[in-house]
Design a protein around this nucleic acid. Sequence first.
DNA 1: TATAATTTGTCCGTATGTATA
DNA 2: TTATACATACGGACAAATTAT
Lengths: 234, 234
Amino acid sequence: MSVKYKLVVEQMEKEILEGKYAFNTKLPTEDELMKKFDVSRNTIRKAIDILVDQGYVYQVQGSGIFLREFSKPGCITMKNMVGLTREFPEDEMTSKLLEFDLIEADEQLAAQMKCKVKTKLYYVKRVRYLNDEPFVIEESYFNKDTIIFLNKEICEGSIFEYITEELKLNIGFADKVISADKLEQEDATLLGLQEGDPTLVVENTVFLNTGVIYDFSREKFHYSSAKLLTLTTK
Amino acid sequence: MSVKYKLVVEQMEKEILEGKYAFNTKLPTEDELMKKFDVSRNTIRKAIDILVDQGYVYQVQGSGIFLREFSKPGCITMKNMVGLTREFPEDEMTSKLLEFDLIEADEQLAAQMKCKVKTKLYYVKRVRYLNDEPFVIEESYFNKDTIIFLNKEICEGSIFEYITEELKLNIGFADKVISADKLEQEDATLLGLQEGDPTLVVENTVFLNTGVIYDFSREKFHYSSAKLLTLTTK
DNA sequence: TATAATTTGTCCGTATGTATA
DNA sequence: TTATACATACGGACAAATTAT
């Protein structure tokens, strides 16, 4: 595991986060980066492409590579597939497992997860707290055909790590549908809000790299404390 | 303007939209695409990268290129910088100009647009209707230093086209911060909703390719008819 | 204002590694 | 195990946009 462009990305990301460059100032040119990392131009350009995609930098033809203002404070960046633990390094993120069950897919779930009706699914409901304040309610459905085993203990830790490290599955991509809605009584109570108050809803459909859906989840965020960030590039 | 990889993207996008391939089925291999379009492997890979980014296809090493289920019906894809006219080809999108003014930036706007207080800004407030139903309230601020001229007529057409075609400015990238909020009385009326009802809010900060902010806008969507879609790739 | 140098963008060819079928 | 197909990496050439002279 010594992919050159990834090493370049990691090193440059580190330098950027350490504050080595100021916003809208020039970074080293591609030529200089080639010499610095002793790799080809293609490798540098591949690494820069990733940094552009992640919103760290932008390039201007004929001019150079510039630092972009990134990470609006308190925002959850949507570029990550899953797991918001790392988004708030300064804050304390805890979670409480409310429900854990093995159920069968009804028609609606089967349609959303592109599986057959009555397919066995693990159902997990959690509330996550940011500095002891309720932040998001999370309901997940995992297809048992792919996630062959799950239990409460795993759900109280990191499901993501279990899937990638233990089951050695390769997560590929995800769809996220974002909307707003009125809270029902039960969810409102969990978030410390009133029935009918707004909530920011994110529905995730998560695929393995093979195109198989293994997870569908619905997150209901506390409307006044959650902000999502997406970056677009040309 | 005959950039090869863009021609490949356009042609493949066309074939995909015409339904030439079924979901999760294999597309031609990179090798076959090279021959079909008579270009190098790098050019094919660059084109495929874009199609992957747009959510059309995914690649599996050693296996092939597969069609991904894209475009959830009725969703606004966030991959586009600006302009939702094209998102609803089947439906009729109209808009009404509510306010047009030349104002001066207060402290908050100056901070958001990274300009000096009292910088001249064009202020535009519109409501947009989807099939005659109110869909979104849009408030935009354009920095007059960059957008040197704007009038009501332009605002009633496509501001985006005016900026790119007439002013020949090169739009580079955008930040989008998504949240949910309670509607105030005035906005609720415009959307045909009640005060206190939810709204899906998107705040856009739009940059030229040089890193200069020329536009800040806030969109308040009708909570029950608007859904945003973001796609993540590894 | 015009020209040259700099810097990124596009495109080609080749070789080898790695995952999948 | 072998063949296929995508992933990584190198090199070179020229075009286009910006910046410096």
